[in-house]
Design a protein around this nucleic acid. Sequence first.
DNA 1: TTGTAGGCGTTATCAG
DNA 2: CTGATAACGCCTACAA
Lengths: 333, 333
Amino acid sequence: MATISDVARAAGVGIGTVSRVINGSPLVSPATRRRVQEAIERLGYQPNPVARAFGRRRTHKLELLAPRFVAPFLFELMQGVEDALADTDYAVLVRSMDTPSDRDRAFETCCRRGRADGVVIVWTPPTEGFVDRLMAEPIPAVLLNAIHARLSSVSVDHDQAARRAAAYCLQLGHRRVALVDRFADPFADAGPGICKRGFDQALAAARVDPRPEYELTGGPEPTSGAAAMERLLDLPEPPTAVVVGSDAQAVGVLDRARSRERRVPADVSIVSYNESSISAFLGLTTVRLPLREMGKRSAELLLHTLIEHTAAPEAVVLDTELVVRATCAPPSS
Amino acid sequence: MATISDVARAAGVGIGTVSRVINGSPLVSPATRRRVQEAIERLGYQPNPVARAFGRRRTHKLELLAPRFVAPFLFELMQGVEDALADTDYAVLVRSMDTPSDRDRAFETCCRRGRADGVVIVWTPPTEGFVDRLMAEPIPAVLLNAIHARLSSVSVDHDQAARRAAAYCLQLGHRRVALVDRFADPFADAGPGICKRGFDQALAAARVDPRPEYELTGGPEPTSGAAAMERLLDLPEPPTAVVVGSDAQAVGVLDRARSRERRVPADVSIVSYNESSISAFLGLTTVRLPLREMGKRSAELLLHTLIEHTAAPEAVVLDTELVVRATCAPPSS
DNA sequence: TTGTAGGCGTTATCAG
DNA sequence: CTGATAACGCCTACAA
């Protein structure tokens, strides 16, 4: 494999000049440039990425840390990241986090210098210790769909999205609206749900009294949605509409509604959250998250920080969209 | 950030000795080793991965090329790869391939030296030109769920799996068994389906005549499954059981069956292919692919080739499993 | 068992 | 504009 000095020799120039040519420096005369390019062509020379990374003291890699929960839309996020990286020579290192210990190990190693130039942490609230280490190291991080005062983030306005979902039901005339929420932290089976605040805001705005028994929270799996729906249907006064915190849960909610002989949307309306091909096919009315855009923006933020060397955290908030399909209707009674 | 010479100086030894210590060479006296380790500890030294890669002429990265089709189980495959890499300092570079031109670009660049030490190509038949280039470069590749004479591969016996799925229906007493197959090449909307051969074998073994109108092929999406089911139900003599080439299609098949007032499994049985949380929840009887194992074995194969320097292609074939759930029953008539 | 020196392929910094 | 040359941080002989 040809090296830069092979090219230099072949073109009769110094390696500095070759370096300038391959890096697009303007400080090369057109004639020399042409000569060098010919030599490059002839020898099929390609700069060695590792040597390059070594010399530049940059790995030219971004690391993506993803918890199991995002598996259904990891591909979409990755594509967004790749979109942002398309015209650069950056590549994406992906690491999965399935258990809390995976997460801690990932947090532990990702900020070690030399692994990657930046990190995208997907849908996972960072621990304080991790943030401390991150601030000590010179490696920029961005949270994707999580928030921290000291870190940059790309997310959607969950309050607004949930408000919109609930408002849609209220607007259709529903007054008994329930929430099957999702835990905000995928590594904790407890804590606040992601939709609660916006949901409550929508109720308040419509002057509908919240009912504690209508607000359930679980993990993003079909079974958890099914269990929640079960409980709601067992209530003396079951809801006529349900806002669900994830498509995965919605699959369970929908299925359980049907197996309990409730027609959707005639007997009960369902609004879900997130967007996936399955939900599209099932005809779920849902809040669409701009996943690809989110991936793209996170990578752009990182790249920007890397170039501008700005340390100030920046928060990007993207818009969601209510996709109306077939699971909502006015209440029948 | 501390370098190897800082450690050497602090421990009062040469850098060679430090190198030996961090690389676990036995050629260090216990006393020296301890001294060096203390220095490492004290300085918080960590070898720079890039410098290491540079010196070793190894990137310590594996590249994973994944077509959009595998999005639903990419996470699982990745986890398998990471399993294999857990005790090494290898990391995974992931690249998505959404369009044929994405694929070609990925094929083009992945075998350039310096990017990664090995490549896993997921579910995508390689082009001949790509194989040629791959053989010229010294970078090992393994196909995951694809086959090529000159390359190593990890896959399942699709014939056997499809045979098993069809045989299960036949065994239940079905004689009108249809196949909604999936194109083997995710980048071609044509070509042979992945289950056809095994399916035909099962019919032959049961002395059931194949009917051309019962064998449909499409892409792995719910809509394609729905369309196929539509056609099957429009037949003068519709099938009583359907073998489906992917869970994605099966979602469509199932939904269309129900919307056309067919009870599953009372009126029509369905066996699917692949395994996902959605299919589990929907109660689909399905052929489970050992995804995580597949990922793991591919990475192991690569690692093995990297260490042993064997060039002979090796083909690993893993077992599938029929997961019996709720979508199959004997024919009603 | 240990230290030293050379090499890896770039980039970056100088003089010219 | 261009060519030397010194880093960069580690690995791997080789010599002691």
